[in-house]
Computed example of a mutant assay.
Amino acid sequence: MQTLKEDVRQNILRAALAEFKSHDYADASMRRISAAAGITTGNIYRYFKNKEELFEALVKPVYEKLLDYLLSLKNELDRSYIDGNGEMKYFGMIEDTVVGLFDAYSAELTILMNRSTGSKYSGVKADMVRLVTTILEDAFASGREHAAKLTAEQRQSARMLAGTIVEGVCLILREHEDGETVKRLVNEFIRLYHAGMMCGLPD
């Protein structure tokens, strides 16, 4: 049996990245991917057993990083209020982690957030909105332990802001391909929301 070659696998991944950026998961074609990679369609299945496995190879590592960073930020926010540090000094973590992802993995994040329809990741955007909502609720309540005291209007505001933030990031990813540009725009966008939140938080 012919030994699988890492350079062929990387060619497949590069071709798949371009295909999934241009087409939703459900519409992406293994035939187009194999043609772009310069191999037969049959040969591509020696490296990835199906389209789902190929898609997962591209987006799963980035999804796990993004989720881990957001959960770490949420935990840091919770600790900051427990320690009496309500100034959100954790904001630098956002730039070092989440924003950094958009520079290194802008294509994969574009696919994950905008092109995953039909895959097991199709609910990622909704998941992100829910997670960002809990982070905003913590901020509004000055800590998770006080979140139960939020009014219905405050909870609705957190959901609306979270949806706007996630949709704004998705829009940036859709309209720009250069990682450095995406990173700069996401950074500016998050800073704008952070400044607005700080102005709106109670003393």
Rank of each mutant, 00 (worst) to 15 (best):
M88N: 06
N114D: 10
E137G: 02
N114Q: 07
G84N: 06
S22L: 13
S29L: 10
V98W: 00
R32L: 10
V129M: 07
E167M: 11
C199S: 08
V124W: 00
L161I: 10
A36D: 14
T164N: 14
S72W: 08
N187T: 15
K125I: 02
D27G: 04
R155Q: 14
N187Y: 08
N114S: 03
A18E: 14
L13P: 04
E177G: 15
H176N: 15
Y45D: 07
D83E: 15
E52Y: 00
H176D: 13
P202M: 02
T164C: 00
M197Y: 10
G84E: 07
F48T: 10
L150K: 07
L67A: 12
I172Y: 04
G84P: 10
E6D: 11
F189D: 06
H146R: 13
Y121C: 00
V169N: 03
E95H: 15
V182C: 04
L171Y: 12
S80D: 14
I135H: 01
A107N: 11
G168T: 08
F55L: 09
S34L: 10
T3P: 01
D127Q: 08
Q2G: 10
G118V: 03
N43D: 08
A107V: 01
A107D: 15
A36K: 10
S34H: 06
M198E: 09
R9V: 05
N43T: 15
N75I: 04
V182E: 08
V59Q: 02
E167D: 15
G42F: 09
F102P: 11
A147V: 14
E95G: 13
D7N: 12
M30W: 02
M93P: 00
L201V: 06
V169M: 12
L101Q: 02
L201K: 05
K149W: 11
I82Q: 03
A126D: 15
Y81Q: 06
A28W: 09
L77Q: 12
L161R: 10
A126L: 08
I39N: 07
E56Q: 10
N85I: 12
I12L: 05
D78W: 02
V129A: 05
Q2S: 13
T133G: 03
I190S: 04
P202S: 06
G163K: 09
V129G: 06
A16D: 11
H194W: 02
Y90T: 11
D138Y: 05
H23E: 13
E188C: 12
R46V: 06
R46D: 09
E64G: 02
R155G: 09
N11C: 10
L4A: 01
R115Y: 01
A141E: 08
G179F: 06
V124A: 08
A162R: 06
K5R: 15
Y193C: 11
D68L: 09
D203S: 09
K74A: 13
Y105G: 01
S157K: 07
N11G: 03
E167L: 13
F20W: 03
E52M: 02
M198F: 00
S142K: 11
N50H: 04
G123P: 03
Y69H: 15
R32A: 08
Q154Y: 01
L201S: 03
R32S: 06
E76W: 07
N114W: 02
S122P: 01
N85G: 00
R79H: 12
F189W: 11
N114R: 12
E19I: 03
A139P: 01
S157I: 08
M30Y: 01
E188M: 14
G118N: 04
G179C: 11
Y105K: 03
L171S: 14
A195I: 05
C199G: 00
